[in-house]
Design a binder for these strands. Structure first.
Lengths: 217, 217
DNA sequence: AATAAAATACTGCATATGTGGTATTATTTG
DNA sequence: CAAATAATACCACATATGCAGTATTTTATT
């Protein structure tokens, strides 16, 4: 299997060295190279769709049209093309934008060649999303940042009851919840009864709906 | 530099093979091993803090106390310890929980040994957050809120099954759903069984969660 | 017309769940 | 300190639910 790749970078030096490095393995065919997002779009449109690259190694900071814009524009147009963003810095604002735009991976340029090759395979064959660890760290921070404020319920449901409710939402049965919290299933049922009363519901489904709607989970 | 590591896994076979593999390099010192979260906590508390591991390879699914609970408990207690979660499946609910709990990395058990070794170095030396690509994909999906693959599940549910599912989400029992659709409760149950199979779930709560998440309601 | 897919209906069984109780032991709070 | 709240544990019963079957009728689709 030969992977059909395009490279987009404004520095010709980068294009050449990157293409040489990944070409070396013989598993990669460089379909074409572009110097910025606009150039990339133009070349893509000018070529028959069956010759399109499967994956694009996309630099982010480029004149005329940056890599994120390019991915955003292309992503809906041709949904069979994958994108790995390449960047020098681990800039979290751009990470988020790139993900929104439709990027499938996000690597630092300093990564070893075999890491990049593996990343290409991961994306094309396994639908994975390879990220450099330092970038993944940003992603995790963003993720854990997008969190909840469970204040308004705290007044009604006790801490323990919230824990129980979370178990219910996870789809666990009484036994499983009990095991997770090191208490008896009987206790779990008592809690759940109390929760139902406080929430004015009378089944798991209703409680779960309420929990999800109010983002207590 | 020798890295001081602990291994937590409920299967002794896993503990042994993992420890042997990563010990082989000579760069790793296995400080101790534990068979579940509780065991890990106990051993950690019983040892002087200057002998603590720098990083813990933590299984997720374990009896008594799972890996996520363990990390959550420890993370605030001893903030100098890092955690890499190891799991067989790429379950996105758990990924989110693990991140919230304070995990620094999240790898599939099937990863190659040198990948795991690199991950350990990344976490300890560069504050990175190594993730297996398939797991990073989940993280990105969580971040962007766009679930591409799950959209087409809808097409697999027939019209009637969707009506039934809506009834379930409303919190109705079989009898009520049957009355609403002028069919027998038996038929409702058959439909629900089929729905579960198609959605790969096995309870109302799970089905409702999926329906809400994908906005089929 | 033949076939596949969907909708319909039923049975039996083991387990899960909701309801309505009782009761003891912290912990908080006025 | 007294009272309220939370957490814990248990019992018993009726009903709901999940699972594994079987089977007929409608409705596309080819």
């Amino acid at each position: 299997m030969v992977y059909r790749i395009a490279i987009v970078d404004d520095k010709s030096q980068n294009r050449i060295s990157l293409s040489e490095k990944i070409n070396y393995s013989g598993e990669i065919e460089i379909v074409f190279m572009a110097r910025n997002g606009k150039d990339f779009l133009d070349q893509l449109k000018a070529m028959p769709q069956n010759k399109h690259p499967q994956l694009v190694l996309m630099d982010i900071d480029m004149p005329e049209m940056n890599g994120i814009e390019a991915v955003r524009n292309c992503h809906n147009l041709y949904d069979d093309i994958k994108y790995i963003m390449l960047t020098v810095f681990d800039d979290d604002d751009k990470l988020f934008d790139a993900i929104q735009a439709g990027a499938d991976g996000y690597l630092l340029k300093e990564e070893r060649v075999d890491t990049i090759l593996n990343a290409i395979k991961e994306v094309i064959e396994k639908q994975g999303a390879p990220m450099s660890p330092s970038i993944a760290r940003k992603a995790l921070n963003l993720l854990s940042g997008t969190k909840k404020e469970e204040a308004n319920v705290q007044t009604t449901l006790s801490d323990r009851e919230m824990e129980i409710l979370k178990g219910v939402v996870k789809g666990l049965d009484y036994k499983k919840i009990a095991d997770e919290l090191f208490i008896s299933p009987h206790t779990v049922r008592t809690h759940i009864s109390n929760i139902y009363e406080k929430l004015h519901v009378s089944s798991k489904v209703q409680a779960v709906k309420m929990a999800l709607k109010n983002k207590w989970v």
